[in-house]
Design a protein around this nucleic acid. Sequence first.
DNA 1: CTGTTAGCGCCTTCAT
DNA 2: ATGAAGGCGCTAACAG
Lengths: 332, 332
Amino acid sequence: MSKPVTISDVAARAGVSPTTVSHALSGRRSVSPSALARVKQAADDLGYRPNQVASSLRTQRTHTVALIVPDIANPYYPAVARGLHDAIAADGYYTTIGSTDGERETELGFLDEMVRRSVDGIIVFAFAMGEEDLTRVVPARIPLVVATHNLTNAHDQVNSDDPAGTETATRHLLAQGITEIAFVSGPKGRGPGDRRLTGYTQAMHSAGIVPTASDIIRSDYTVAGGRQAVGELLSRPRPPRALVCANDLIAIGALEAARDAGVAVPADLAVIGFDDVDAASLVAPPLTTVVNPAYEMGRQCGRLLLDRLIEGYDGPPRSVVVPTHLIIRATA
Amino acid sequence: MSKPVTISDVAARAGVSPTTVSHALSGRRSVSPSALARVKQAADDLGYRPNQVASSLRTQRTHTVALIVPDIANPYYPAVARGLHDAIAADGYYTTIGSTDGERETELGFLDEMVRRSVDGIIVFAFAMGEEDLTRVVPARIPLVVATHNLTNAHDQVNSDDPAGTETATRHLLAQGITEIAFVSGPKGRGPGDRRLTGYTQAMHSAGIVPTASDIIRSDYTVAGGRQAVGELLSRPRPPRALVCANDLIAIGALEAARDAGVAVPADLAVIGFDDVDAASLVAPPLTTVVNPAYEMGRQCGRLLLDRLIEGYDGPPRSVVVPTHLIIRATA
DNA sequence: CTGTTAGCGCCTTCAT
DNA sequence: ATGAAGGCGCTAACAG
């Protein structure tokens, strides 16, 4: 259990002051070649590794970014995390991830802890809390990127272009002459369903069709939920010819419901999902869906943060919209 | 850009010393009721939040655990991360995750940085580096849990019971009277394929069958790789009647290859996967597979760490084996 | 029950 | 080109 090597140890061995060691290793001020060589040698010999905690206390920088999501095990977020990682790793930033299960208390607790830890930036995907909570818990000095739609005007934000995605999907169906199209959403006011609904409505209106209440189905964002909701839908006297679903899991549930009911996809029922999770290309038949670029979302969040952290951008909040696009497989 | 509130600010407002504030808030030594009340009030008024960086420098504890994996976007690892999170969050530990793409330099760099940051523990799932690298980079004082098979005797380790899993899977096929069973592995010496192969071999031997070299197929761990390898296999003059695959992605590729070749599953070709990723239950037909409990793996890693970090266990390295089990769906 | 003192390891003036 | 000194904010040892 030998003690870690400190900068003083290196200084002693190199016959210089700690100050010179610090500068020799950081390059922040010039050091004579001979001193430089001796310091490097000594550091090497001793296996010196600068203590980042001490450095952070002194410099007020931790080179750490906090990512707060509902559940890292939900297939969407790992891709976000990876995109973020790839955007910031090269500049020496690391990520601490918190899963909050969408519970307000947990979210607040995690944010509070990250502030205590002096993280250099925070990225928020989770949201049971409101904007007031956010501004109360996170001091203005810490850059914040919000990736939950419509929540903020006070912070940088990154969103995927959900309306454009479902609009394109719906148009794809309309172009095939299909007009009886239902939208299968999540619970009202929760998650991206509402934003995605607007694109569908938009496209329908453009085609001169006014969707009725019975064309908009509420589900949750799971396979089981989609299966049940669509099962009921298919037992109606006059079921729709196509479905635009708020996410892939619902769409996969819809596929199962169609199979249960002996309805052929896409001949009798066309199905389009949203997200393009891995499973989308693996189900049978492979799912036509809107690509929601999670990786890119994470990357953009990282870039906005670095812009403030490294480039010194200090202007007003900015909004990045990440484009979505339709990928046509076999269900529509 | 107001400066953060420090313990001295609280002390001044409460009319006590910083020491008393520290103890009042941590409860590590008793404080008079009146002082306690004044401190709490003052802390509340000022919105004081203890600086964890300073605390860490003083206490030599960061309450942070590093998790190193090849790729957080690979569906297996988020479940591990969640299991770890759930095991340690209640005790105030947080996780920093590094994706290394299995590159030795990246792995070493990440580990080195985590040591500099004085993390309290490290969990290693990634491995291009060898055990010498590990012991060289990570000082003995930092508890380490290794979840890469057979790499260590010097550290705590957590493994899933791979051999038992494939043995059960193979027996399940043998019990149906099927004897022409091939094993589709990954690249030799990389990943869990070799360990999973042993269970297959074991079961075959028990049934008096000696697999030949042509019964063991090399692929990578992807859908595309599995599809191609099994495609070639099926074009042999006398293809096997069943496949035990080293992971689910390979198995899903096998399903595609069977469809390509017009081979009926499971009637003409039975297929068993490994892992039980989400997609396994979603493909058609739903995949029979061995459940490899990623969440539980992560949880056990966390427990081993906490045992040393909190309980003060200081004995020899321990090994935890997480059981696997077969889940029978429609492909075998 | 409370306070004073010291120092965790580093970086950054300031002085030379 | 180099060093001495001070302090980031906190907590532990020591003293009362």
